[in-house]
Write a protein that binds this DNA or RNA. Structure first.
Lengths: 338, 338
DNA sequence: ATCGTTCTTGAAAACGTTCCTAAGAACGTT
DNA sequence: AACGTTCTTAGGAACGTTTTCAAGAACGAT
């Protein structure tokens, strides 16, 4: 039971018989005589000295922490991003703290507000819904921020986004090459950034390849989750007979896979399925899922690097990066239509 | 571009024409006259005043933050825990920060060390490997800590653990009821806490039901991941012909599902498969996976409550909770053996 | 009219750190 | 021997907040 009071610089200084300033200097790698440095280090070790983060932060204005805010820790695309970002920021000397905000813009605004209290040196945020209020909160924050996702052009914030439109184009092109013509979209909520981008991309791709859009082939799930994907697919199958389904993310696509199986349809023979994000879930699925790789790791990496630059160089020009998509073909689309 | 210096209590006080103390009192709900309170609030709003977290922490010794440390954010069981814990701690007025440490005990020790600098008021940690060094770091930390997982009896730290042994017993019992006799275990590394517990539980259950243990039916994966599960299952199939496989967690079991399919075996007809943790992955799998529910949500909830109590009441007696398992039966075990 | 009580407000200390400034020691140069 | 330069070390201010203490105002009771 170490009921002893936590030690501080003054205690270490007293024990070593030197000034507080000298202790700080030695412990932070400043110059000092051999003898003094040794005494300080011994005293610090004996007292189990650990520097206080808030005192240091108050003095230096730095926390050495970066916050990553994601809507849903359960979405594997965010898991992928977390992994990537952790590595990058650690290399630059920052600790990563992850905050799961939920899809509600208000809770993201609250998060930005609380970060303005100085909990972190920077924020990586991937907002699902971009409201004017959120944009306002992001713009007026004194904190360096990088957005992973699309922003209106007039907003002066660094961002890295995927190109879902081109990505969906790859999926449509591939499906057409496999002989599919009735290509359905199981989308997430269209009032979200990815939802609206994917719908637009889907419609553009259909037009480009000369297919007429058909509202019966478009359904909207209540969220980007497995369960929502199943429900939406059930609705889709109730109103039309697609020969291919594009899920707006991998979880929706896996939901489609399961619902197709439940309806007695075979993938890919009866219906081909494509997901988006190319996460672990695509590989785990049965049959394994062809998926559009929207570069989540690359986006996360670029965003983290951008944020670190922004922290070190606050006046650098604003960057807007776009990461190119590619297609990972797996079992769920290989084999021609019946 | 708000290049203005961040505002503080002194600026607000000057603008409102009152003392710093009064501003603090008003903003923290102390008593003050109607008029003074109004002036303070106006001045604070005009200046966009936001209190500084580190200054407040330094003064009060509180951060209102709780850290949750998990080995791997990609493991769905931790996702489940994160979701549960977020809700509980938010209700008690704490913010949750998640830290992904990896399975290396050293990085967990480093985390405990850094938390001793005062980044959080408490720590929830679910260590994969419990080394003497880690125990030492946990015991000697001044931070309130609750461990999610097993601890040696002599360690005086609150903990909430699952009962894997009983859980595996449920799985074995169920499989025997389905006519299975050659029940294999695809385990994770045995130098981990769950790995050793699950091996012991498996052997005990076999004995209890009168089955002879067979080393050819036991394989050890290099981690608790999907890929490791596939490799281990491939090795298992190379050396024996089980009629049932228990995966030490859901990811390993999904790996087994996929590898069995690749080997041309049908689940559950040829081989039944059971996972552990009963995560989303069990439901997403094809066929859906029977899984032992080790109460991850209940554990997370109990642990969070324990931690909050420990923070508010540091001298409360040490609690060691055990959460009972149950079995969620799904397609992967329903149907008799060939 | 005097006293005691309650209420409002301000001054100032404290939390633990970093870093600026300057004092003194050590040493080389003229 | 006197002086300038460099190096080591200590003192003390500052970061922004909360909170204790005390002073003064307001008010009712005797």
């Amino acid at each position: 039971m170490a009921a002893t009071r936590r030690s501080n610089l003054a205690l270490v200084a007293a024990r070593a018989g030197v000034s507080v300033a000298s202790v700080s200097r030695v412990l932070n790698g400043g110059s000092a005589s051999e003898d003094l440095a040794r005494r300080v280090r011994e005293a610090a070790a004996e007292l189990g000295y650990v520097p206080d983060a808030s005192a240091r932060t108050m003095r230096t204005g730095r926390t050495d922490q970066i916050t990553l805010a994601v809507a849903d820790v359960g979405n594997p695309v965010y898991v992928q991003m977390m992994r990537t970002v952790t590595g990058i920021v650690a290399k630059a000397g920052y600790r990563l703290v992850v905050s799961s905000t939920g899809s509600d813009p208000q809770s993201q605004i609250d998060l930005v507000g609380s970060l303005n209290r100085g909990y972190a040196d920077g924020l990586l945020i991937s907002p699902l819904r971009v409201t004017p209020e959120l944009l306002d909160a992001l713009s007026s924050s004194r904190l360096p921020i990088v957005v992973i996702g699309s922003l209106p052009p007039e907003v002066d914030i660094d961002s890295v986004r995927a190109d879902s439109a081109t990505g969906i184009g790859l999926a449509v092109e591939h499906l057409i090459g496999q002989g599919r013509r009735r290509i359905a979209l199981v989308n997430g909520p269209v009032d979200t950034v990815p939802g609206s981008a994917r719908l637009a991309g889907y419609l553009a791709a259909l037009e480009r390849f000369g297919l007429a859009p058909n509202s019966e082939l478009q359904v909207t799930a209540t969220g980007f989750t497995y369960r929502a994907g199943r429900r939406a697919t059930a609705a889709l199958l109730g109103q039309s007979t697609p020969d291919a389904i594009i899920g707006a993310n991998d979880l929706l696509a896996v939901g489609a896979l399961k619902e197709l199986a439940a309806a007695g349809l075979t993938v890919p023979t009866d219906v081909a399925v494509v997901g988006m994000d190319d996460t672990d879930a695509a590989e785990l699925a049965t049959p394994s899922l062809t998926s559009v790789d929207l570069g989540s790791s690359k986006r996360a990496k670029a965003a983290a690097q951008l944020l670190i630059r922004r922290i070190e160089e606050p006046d650098a020009p604003v960057s807007r990066l776009v990461i190119d998509p590619s297609l990972s073909v797996r079992e769920s689309t290989l084999g021609s239509a019946a």
